[in-house]
């Protein structure tokens, strides 16, 4: 009977269970029906098994999204957990699809599953990567626009982890503002 250390036996549990979604427009379906739930996981091992298995964001067809949200939260404004919140928005230029997009997206996923925002992690709902011809976008969605401290802390950690230069600012927009404005031209409630 050789004793195997528990480290080898037990998968490493995550604080939260997360669900990966894939969005692809299909004209005979409603927008909501085009959001397909791929898989949920709650261990480090299962995250990598899923992540290593799927296409990187940079190779998705233009118009597609990946989203990863806490289980029970749909990747849409209307969801009960999202409707009072907003998102930190990172806009990438066309060249950055090849150089930054996959790195940024992976770092955002690791920040979320690792609870890297400490107590502010409770404000995080999930993140979305939009692959678009006019420039890809990554959004980190939080639950309540009134939680200034948490939102700003999340923005700072995000900027630091993605090595976004100090002089480049990223903005936080309330979903309520984004809904009425077309696209991401909504005003920024916060910037870092």
């Amino acid at each position: 009977q050789t004793d195997v250390s528990p480290e080898m036996l037990i998968k490493h549990p995550l604080q939260n269970t997360w669900t990966l979604w894939f969005f692809k427009i299909e004209n005979n379906r409603t927008w909501e029906d085009c959001q397909m739930e791929i898989a949920s996981f709650n261990t480090v091992e299962d995250f990598w098994a899923l992540y290593n298995h799927i296409e990187p964001a940079s190779r998705l067809k233009v118009g597609c999204d990946y989203s990863m949200f806490k289980q029970g939260i749909k990747p849409m404004w209307e969801d009960e957990h999202n409707c009072r919140g907003g998102r930190w928005l990172i806009n990438l230029n066309k060249q950055q699809r090849a150089t930054e997009l996959d790195n940024f997206w992976m770092e955002v996923l690791l920040l979320m599953i690792g609870e890297a925002f400490a107590e502010h992690s409770d404000e995080v709902c999930g993140s979305v990567v939009n692959v678009r011809s006019k420039g890809d976008k990554i959004g980190v969605w939080t639950a309540d626009v009134k939680k200034n401290d948490s939102i700003l802390r999340i923005g700072h950690v995000l900027k630091e982890r993605l090595n976004i230069p100090r002089l480049v600012t990223i903005g936080f927009q309330a979903h309520k503002d984004t809904m009425v404005k077309s696209g991401s031209t909504a005003k920024n409630r916060f910037t870092v």
Binding site: L14, G114, E119, R161
Partner: peptide, 18 residues
């Protein structure tokens, strides 16, 4: 309560473990 936090380096080490 307690929170399960994983550093980036640990998560990256786990990427290719069996």
């Amino acid at each position: 309560g307690t929170r399960i936090i994983y550093e980036r380096t640990f998560l990256m080490q786990m990427r290719n473990s069996p």
